[in-house]
C-alpha cells in the first residue's frame, strides 16, 4: 500500500514539466539524439568550411537531393515499426522508375503511367506482405524475393536507361518555388507530404496504432482483438507504394529511368530510419525521426563532397553511426528487460 501511496503523493505534489514530458515522450530520446547529431554536423561543417555551409541553397538542396530516400525511409519506418524489414525498396524504386520512363517513352499519358508506377510498387509490397503474414516467411527472406523480383523486372522493362521527355514529370523537378534564396521543388513537396500523411496515419488512425502495437508485442495485439493480419500486410503494401513513389521522384530528379538505380539504397533507407531513432525490433520510433535520419545521411554526404574526400567515407561513417545506434538501442532494450 505504501508504495502506491507514495506514488500517488508524488503525483499530488505535482510533477515537473520535464518529468511529465519524459514519461510521455521518453521514446523520442533517440530522435532527439539524431537532431543533436544533425545540428552538430551543421555547426561543425560551418566552422570547418568557414561559413560556407549553412546557406539557404545548401539546405534547400538537401531536401531536393534526398527526396527519394526520404520517401523510401517513410515506407521503411512502417515496416520496421512492426518489427519487420523490407530489403526490396531499392529494387522496387528502380523498377517503378524504369517502368514509368518506358511507358512515357511509348507514348502512354502521364495520368496512366504514374498510377502504374505506384501500383507496380504496391503489388510487389503486397506479395511480400502475403508471404510474411500467411506463409510465415521471415520478412528478410520474403523481401529478398521482392528485391530479386524488382531488380529483374527492371531489367525486363529495359536493359539500359530511358530518357524522360514528358514535361509534366520533368516539371516536378524543374519548378522552383522560391522564398528569397530558399526554394523547394514539387518533388520536395511530395516527400514532405508523404512524411505528413505517414505521421497522421501512424498516430491518429487505428491502423497506425495497430502497427505500433504489433511492434510492441504481436501476441498481445492479437489478444487485444486488433486487426493484426491486415496491418502486417498493409505495412509492406505501404512500403512498396513508397518504393513506387520514390521511383517517380527519382525519375523526375534524374530525368531518366535506369534499371541499375538504387542498388544498396535499401541499406541507406534502413540506416536512415535507425539513425532517426526507430528501433529495429519494432514498436518504437517516429516517421519524423526517419526524416531527421535522412537529413543526417544527406548532410554527411554533402560535407564529404564539400571536403573533396572519398565517397567511401560515406559508407563507413553511416555504418559507424548505425553501429552506435544499434548498441545504444541494445542497451535500452536490455535495461527495460531487466525492469520486467
Amino acid at each position: 500500500m505504501t508504495a502506491m501511496a507514495t506514488r500517488i503523493q508524488e503525483r499530488a505534489s505535482g510533477p515537473s514539466f520535464l518529468q511529465t514530458f519524459l514519461s510521455r515522450h521518453g521514446g523520442m530520446m533517440p530522435t532527439f539524439a539524431a537532431v543533436g547529431i544533425l545540428l552538430l554536423l551543421f555547426v561543425g561543417a560551418e566552422i570547418f568550411l568557414r561559413g560556407d555551409f549553412i546557406t539557404p541553397r545548401n539546405i534547400s538542396a538537401l531536401l531536393l537531393d534526398n527526396a527519394y530516400l526520404l520517401v523510401l525511409a517513410v515506407g521503411m519506418t512502417f515496416v520496421i515499426l512492426t518489427g519487420g524489414i523490407d530489403l526490396s525498396v531499392g529494387s522496387v524504386m528502380a523498377f517503378s522508375g524504369i517502368l514509368g520512363a518506358k511507358l512515357l517513352a511509348d507514348g502512354v499519358p502521364a495520368v496512366v503511367a504514374v498510377p502504374a508506377m505506384l501500383l507496380g510498387g504496391a503489388a510487389i509490397g503486397l506479395m511480400i506482405g502475403i508471404l510474411v503474414q500467411y506463409f510465415d516467411v521471415q520478412p528478410f527472406i520474403a523481401s529478398l524475393a521482392g528485391l530479386f523480383l524488382g531488380r529483374g523486372l527492371a531489367y525486363v522493362v529495359s536493359l539500359s536507361s530511358i530518357k524522360v521527355e514528358e514535361s509534366s514529370l520533368l516539371w516536378l523537378q524543374s519548378t522552383r518555388i522560391r522564398l528569397g534564396d530558399w526554394y523547394i521543388t514539387p518533388t520536395g513537396l511530395i516527400a514532405l507530404g508523404t512524411v505528413a500523411i505517414a505521421a497522421f496515419v501512424l498516430h491518429l488512425t487505428r491502423f497506425g496504432r495497430t502497427v505500433y502495437a504489433i511492434g510492441g508485442s504481436e501476441q498481445s495485439a492479437r489478444l487485444m482483438g486488433l486487426k493484426v493480419a491486415r496491418a502486417k500486410v498493409g505495412v509492406y503494401v505501404i512500403s512498396g507504394l513508397c518504393g513506387g513513389l520514390a521511383g517517380l521522384v527519382l525519375t523526375a530528379y534524374s530525368g531518366a529511368g535506369y534499371p541499375r538505380n538504387g542498388i544498396g539504397t535499401e541499406l541507406d533507407a534502413i540506416a536512415a530510419v535507425v539513425i532517426g531513432g526507430t528501433i529495429l525490433t519494432g514498436g518504437r520510433g517516429y516517421v519524423i525521426g526517419s526524416m531527421i535520419g535522412v537529413f543526417v545521411y544527406g548532410t554527411i554526404k554533402t560535407i564529404i563532397s564539400f571536403m573533396g574526400a572519398e565517397q567511401s567515407w560515406m559508407q563507413i561513417i553511416v555504418g559507424a553511426l548505425l553501429l552506435l545506434f544499434i548498441v545504444v538501442q541494445r542497451a535500452i532494450v536490455a535495461r527495460s528487460e531487466g525492469r520486467r
Binding site: E310, Q311, S312, Q315, A320, L322, L323
Partner: peptide, 27 residues
Amino acid sequence: VLGIQPIIATLVLMLAGRGVALLITGG
C-alpha cells in the same frame, strides 16, 4: 558477446565494408 540480432549486427559491416574496400583501393 553483445547479443545483437545477427541480421542487424552483420548489416553494419555490409554497409561499411564496401567503404573500407574503396578506401583501401583509393577509390
